[in-house]
């Protein structure tokens, strides 16, 4: 059995089919980037992995256990925005997970336990390159630094699975490249299984081990909701040949033509 098994998963809202017949297996330590047109259900899929949405049909198992449809410490998450706590400093944001764990009622640590948690948090803060900002509040940080913080905060909990929902979508291209280095490094160091949604096809071709493309392969023009999206391409990163990448780009551009997606049109292989 693989680490994560996705068996015939569907997601429907009323008669709107968002996802259909999703079948896949994922091994531990894989880094999957997910691309797809807007509204094709890739975020819905990530939400199912996160546990905030349940599939309408089908089953997802992690390590042979059915996935719990409630967010918990098994899966870490970094959203595009709003995933750090504005009322805590960088250090407090990272220490928080330990306080939740070791102090169920007060959720505050004292004395030696506190010292230990702070040390651990500082190591993690250093790993994401935020040491100089440890005592700053999030609003004093740039967008890239906030995302570094969000990653450090999630990783201190040592999740087996890390979910990234367009984590670098709001960042400048230069900073994005730094963040790619950081994520790749942390992925190797902590042996994470990563699912990352991105709008940037270049990221999909470059990061990780595996690229998934979500797309509708059947379309009923009279009833657009009749069919859902599936994983239309599942290719190992690095071995995407010219022909396949052309096809992927084409299929994405078809849907995005009307929506003006600059990230996709600017991509060159």
């Amino acid at each position: 059995m693989s680490y994560i098994n996705i068996k015939n998963v569907w997601k429907e809202y009323g008669d709107q089919v968002v996802l259909e017949r999703i079948n896949s297996t994922v091994e531990e330590g894989e880094f999957i980037t997910i691309v797809g047109a807007s509204g094709c259900g890739k975020t819905t899929f990530l939400k199912m992995l996160l546990g905030t949405e349940a599939p309408s049909r089908g089953l997802i198992t992690v390590a042979n256990e059915p996935l719990r449809y409630e967010p918990d410490a098994q899966r870490g998450i970094v959203f595009q925005r709003y995933s750090v706590f504005p009322h805590m400093t960088v250090l407090q944001n990272v220490v928080l997970a330990r306080e939740f764990e070791k102090s169920r009622f007060l959720s505050r640590l004292f004395g030696r336990a506190r010292k230990q948690a702070i040390e651990e948090a500082l190591t993690m803060i250093e790993a994401v390159g935020l040491s100089a900002a440890a005592n700053k509040y999030p609003h004093e940080l740039s967008g890239g630094m906030q995302q570094r913080l969000a990653i450090a905060q999630a990783l201190i909990k040592k999740p087996r699975i890390l979910l990234l929902d367009e984590p670098f979508g709001a960042l400048d291209p230069g900073i994005r490249a730094d963040m790619h280095q950081l994520v790749l490094e942390l992925w190797r160091r902590y042996k994470l299984t990563i699912f990352m949604i991105t709008h940037d096809l270049k990221e999909g071709f470059y990061l990780g081990t595996r690229l998934w493309v979500f797309d509708k392969d059947r379309i009923d023009p009279h009833h657009p909701g009749a069919f859902g999206a599936r994983i239309t391409y599942d290719v190992p990163v690095g071995s995407v040949d010219q022909k396949a990448s052309e096809k992927i780009r084409e299929s994405l551009q078809q849907h995005n033509a009307a929506q003006d997606e600059p990230e996709l049109s600017g991509v060159s292989s």
Binding site: F79, Y82, F85, F100, L106, K157
Partner: peptide, 22 residues
Amino acid sequence: PGEQIIKAQTLGANTWQIIVRV
């Protein structure tokens, strides 16, 4: 933002902890 509440849950918080810390 709902993201914060979800994030707290992925950090292992229970309802009470989310109320007092977040």
